[in-house]
């Protein structure tokens, strides 16, 4: 279990039209989503490039809570219902929706690493 995740500084971008108190609620969800990501996904998906941890920019289509369990062969063991709930997958989706995109330089590095 990841109990003392070192909090990486993540920037979230919310639409301007979103009321500040709603933004606050979403930020709370995003932070929760970030921790759930760290627990359930980071081991395979976060890449360490020259000492810097880069989280990929997954799109919402890619992590739609239900399909994600069958989208990737490894997930049939790692993302079972005994390990993570659909609700939690939804929170991770929220995290990715509002996480600031990686710089193009980092995205490129990530691509090369794959």
């Amino acid at each position: 279990m990841m109990q003392c995740t070192s909090q990486q500084k993540i920037v979230y971008i919310f639409p301007d039209a979103m009321a500040p108190d709603i933004q606050k609620d979403y930020e709370k969800q995003c932070k929760k989503g970030y921790i759930l990501y760290q627990i359930n996904c980071a081991k395979c998906h976060t890449k360490n490039i020259n000492g810097k941890n880069i989280i990929p920019d997954f799109t919402i289509e890619k992590i739609s809570a239900y399909e994600i369990r069958v989208a990737n062969a490894l997930h049939s063991d790692s993302l079972t219902e005994e390990r993570i709930t659909a609700e939690e997958l939804g929170i991770i989706s929220t995290f990715f929706t509002y996480k600031a995109r990686n710089s193009s330089k980092d995205s490129l590095k990530l691509l090369n690493k794959k």
Binding site: M1, I39, T80, R83, I84, T85
Partner: peptide
């Protein structure tokens, strides 16, 4: 089959 998550928040314990 898996019906409900009886562990709730403690799912990964």
């Amino acid at each position: 089959y898996n019906g409900q998550n009886a562990k709730g928040l403690y799912i990964r314990v």
